[in-house]
Amino acid sequence: METLIVQPKNKKQLLAIEAVLHALNVTFKKEQHYNAKFIDEMAKGEEDIKKGRLTRIEDVQNIWESIL
């Protein structure tokens, strides 16, 4: 048979697609292209940025002095 590659844009779409496949008794498998821990770390980093938990470096010529 054929293989379909589906790329939902969000969790809501993913859940809807899975529900339809279950209802039609279609077998499927989910694959992640990234390690789950990596995805969690990226999400945490984005949340930190939104909350202002970051370090801004104004003078890149003296980057090491800014950090230390």
Rank of each mutant, 00 (worst) to 15 (best):
K9E: 12
L14P: 01
Q32D: 13
I17N: 04
P8G: 04
H33F: 13
W64V: 13
N10V: 00
E2Y: 06
I57G: 02
E58H: 09
K29E: 15
Q13D: 06
K9S: 05
K30Q: 15
A19F: 01
N35G: 01
V26D: 02
Q13N: 03
D59K: 14
M1S: 11
S66W: 08
Y34C: 08
I63K: 11
E2S: 09
A23T: 08
K51P: 01
L4P: 01
A16S: 09
N25S: 11
T3G: 03
Y34T: 06
K30A: 06
V6Y: 03
Q13E: 13
T3R: 12
N35M: 07
P8H: 07
P8I: 08
R56P: 00
D48R: 13
I67T: 05
N25Y: 03
H33L: 15
Q13F: 01
D48G: 00
I57K: 08
V20Q: 14
T55Y: 05
K29R: 15
T27A: 14
R56E: 12
I49P: 01
H22M: 12
K50N: 05
H22I: 13
Q13C: 01
H33S: 11
D59W: 04
K44T: 05
L24Q: 10
Q32S: 15
N10Y: 03
Q13T: 01
E2V: 06
I39Q: 08
K50Q: 08
D48P: 00
L54R: 14
I5N: 09
Q7I: 13
I17T: 06
Q7S: 10
L54D: 05
E46A: 10
M42R: 13
D40F: 01
I57P: 02
W64H: 14
I17S: 02
G52F: 00
Q13M: 04
A19P: 00
E47S: 08
T27Y: 08
